[in-house]
């Protein structure tokens, strides 16, 4: 059985907000390591990989691996019934036909209990090898979100060029063109806002902005984001949390 108590229930609410528009149904794979999820969007262009490590919960107990098949829209509706400061406890027994959720307020005088029906999901699990990327950009997650939103005014896609000087996001469309360049600035006073680049070689890649904008729904989960890129392989956009991560993979756009 699974029992996982999350002191900051808001985290789970934010995680759901970050994935529910990209994927509709997914298995939460629970093991003694924690709760993991991997799912592709319907078009098989983007993939979400989520890990909530066991040490992010207190207590965490999972004596047998369980796959909890969840409709994410339904779960997100139930989570809207939890207060932002509530402690959330997830429970499922080994038959895994329902997920029990308990929300306790901080004064511990209001306890709400919900049960969500689970479903069998035959999900395709992809093996993603450890990859050394040609360019890794670490930057403010809020800045990344702003750039994607701004450039979406111009085009459906963005060209990302990374050199040792900086990273340039450019878009061209019917109404004109636009570009935002962030110079590498590891010495700025505000570490949170620094743009850092690790580069093996320059890269220039095109990606769909619609998906990138979708990924930025994870912005409330982390102040930093990393973009890992190599020619002709999927982009990895990673938001690291205190006890886990949310990773998005996006296939590059290629010439016809």
């Amino acid at each position: 059985m699974l029992e996982a108590r999350l002191q900051t229930g808001a985290l789970l609410k934010k995680v759901l907000e970050a994935i529910k528009e990209l994927i509709t149904d997914a298995n939460f794979d629970c093991s003694d390591n924690g709760i993991a999820l991997q799912a592709m969007d319907n078009s098989h262009v983007a993939l979400v990989a989520l890990l909530l490590r066991h040490d992010g919960f207190e207590p965490y107990r999972c004596d047998r691996s369980l796959a909890l098949g969840v409709n994410l829209v339904s779960l997100s509706k139930v989570l809207r019934c939890a207060g932002n400061d509530d402690i959330i406890t997830l429970k499922a027994d080994d038959t895994a036909d329902v997920l029990s959720l308990t929300f306790e307020n901080t004064d511990n005088d209001r306890i709400s209990e919900y049960e969500l029906k689970l479903m069998d999901i035959d999900s395709e699990h992809l093996g993603i090898p450890d990859t050394t990327y040609e360019a890794v950009v670490q930057m403010s997650s809020a800045e990344f979100a702003r750039i994607c939103k701004d450039l979406q005014v111009l085009s459906d896609s963005v060209q990302i060029d990374v050199t040792k000087e900086g990273v340039k996001f450019g878009a061209k469309g019917e109404l004109g063109s636009g570009a935002v360049t962030l110079k590498q600035n590891g010495n700025v006073d505000k570490e949170e806002e620094a743009t850092l680049i690790e580069l093996q070689q320059n890269v220039s890649l095109n990606f769909s902005l619609k998906y990138l904008v979708n990924f930025t729904k994870a912005t409330p989960l982390a102040s930093r984001v990393s973009l890992s890129m190599s020619s002709e392989v999927p982009l990895l956009v990673e938001y690291k949390m205190e006890a886990g991560y949310i990773r998005y993979y996006l296939a590059p756009k290629i010439g016809e």
Partner: peptide, 14 residues
């Protein structure tokens, strides 16, 4: 125009 790749081309089934 560019076309969008499919992730399955890059990553095989686990």
């Amino acid at each position: 125009a560019a076309v969008q790749d499919n992730l399955r081309i890059f990553y095989g089934r686990d």
